[in-house]
């Protein structure tokens, strides 16, 4: 995948994710999110991408200030990171620095899986399956009451815990070959989809997928 195609695909993905987010806030914090939706539409159209990205970056900074942090945790943090990397890629004085901006996004994406797996591996409660049991037993995340019963299925939570840890820890190995990366991204998308279904983390699904083209380009750039 060429740099230009990857950059444009990330722009399209981020703009769709931001439109989805803006749509959820209409009627609640309209003044803050309606301009975001409109600017994301401009970015989606492909005209005036640079100014649209900088406008979205400023709006997202304003949102960070308004909520004194990310409204939706990691999903909004990755959205801001994507916007920052896109903004730098557009404003960079040379192609080298544009590539560095997209490469930074790709590296952060790899780290988002690897570090997340690494810290779980270091926690005995994750290794025994108890942590995932507690996610379903009493955390505020399961989206429906009947999902609490998953906490009682110890074999399932133990197996799922190790599957998540193993996948996240091994994720950097996907950079070794395009086929590995394709497989890893399909599994990762399924993982985010399951988080969206069971834990209601829908915004994570959209924003993580929108950054994948940066990783596909990065893999080809460093290995391919």
């Amino acid at each position: 995948m060429s740099f230009e195609v990857a950059l444009r695909l990330v722009e399209i993905g981020v703009s769709l994710a931001l439109i989805q987010r803006a749509f959820e806030h209409i009627g609640r914090e309209t003044a803050l999110f309606l301009p975001q939706g409109l600017l994301a539409l401009v970015l989606l159209s492909g005209f005036a991408s640079g100014p649209a990205i900088w406008g979205l970056w400023l709006l997202n900074l304003w949102q960070l200030y308004r909520f004194q942090g990310a409204y939706n945790g990691g999903a909004d943090k990755l959205a801001m990171l994507c916007l920052t990397c896109l903004a730098v890629a557009h404003a960079a004085p040379t192609p080298f620095w544009s590539e560095m901006a997209l490469a930074y996004l790709a590296v952060q994406l790899v780290l988002s899986y690897f570090i997340s797996g690494w810290v779980k591996l270091g926690n005995p409660d994750w290794r025994s399956g108890a942590a995932l049991r507690d996610v379903f037993a009493f955390s505020a995340y399961p989206v429906a009451g009947n999902l609490r019963a998953i906490a009682d299925r110890q074999t399932l939570t133990f197996t799922a815990s190790w599957a998540v840890i193993a996948f996240e820890i091994a994720f950097p190995l996907a950079l070794l070959h395009p086929m590995f990366l394709t497989g890893a991204l399909i599994i990762a998308a399924g993982f985010h989809l399951s988080n969206a279904i069971f834990l209601g983390l829908n915004r994570f699904f959209w924003i993580w997928l929108s950054a994948y083209p940066a990783l596909i380009w990065f893999q080809g750039r460093i290995v391919g």
């Binding site: 900074l61 960070l64 200030y65 004194q68 990310a70 943090k77 990171l81 780290l111 779980k120 996610v135």
Partner: peptide, 14 residues
């Protein structure tokens, strides 16, 4: 507020 978005910790569900 901005720094954690540029250098995220990624310690999800630690």
């Amino acid at each position: 507020l901005l720094l954690p978005t540029l250098f995220p910790s990624w310690r999800f569900f630690e």
